[in-house]
């Protein structure tokens, strides 16, 4: 989507995408395209997600049993895979979120020591 300047977009840090997916699924099961859209929308399109990279991440989360997958029908009656956060995933999200907060805080303090 070329509405924003390239330089304003941010490449995702390794592992961050996993966190974003978990966060997105907290609201309820969603299919792949919906997850991509949600992340894009929620970040005001700042985060550049190559949609394809979603799939390895999803599979990684499935493998770790942080999310589960089920067949379902989407809003316009098409068959689709729905991804759902598992209990383990919910716990993991908490851990990852607090880790992220710490990291972000630390980086912010370093970058703006006065503030």
């Amino acid at each position: 989507m070329s509405t924003k300047e390239e330089r304003e977009r941010i490449e995702l840090l390794q592992g961050t995408l996993d966190l974003l997916i978990l966060r997105t699924l907290l609201r309820g099961p969603a299919h792949g395209h919906a997850i991509a859209k949600t992340i894009e929308f929620n970040s005001d399109e700042v985060l550049q997600v190559e949609q394809g990279s979603l799939y390895p991440a999803l599979h990684r989360l499935i493998k770790r049993r942080w999310i589960s997958v089920e067949e379902g029908t989407s809003e316009n009656n098409r068959r689709a895979k729905f991804y759902r956060l598992t209990r383990k995933g919910r716990k993991q999200l908490k851990v990852e979120t607090s880790k992220w907060d710490k990291l972000a805080g630390a980086i912010a303090r370093i970058l703006r020591p006065a503030g």
Binding site: M1, E50, Q51, G52, S53, Y55, P56
Partner: peptide, 8 residues
């Protein structure tokens, strides 16, 4: 937008 399907 999807990227390189083969790579994915």
């Amino acid at each position: 937008k999807f990227g390189n399907v083969m790579r994915v």
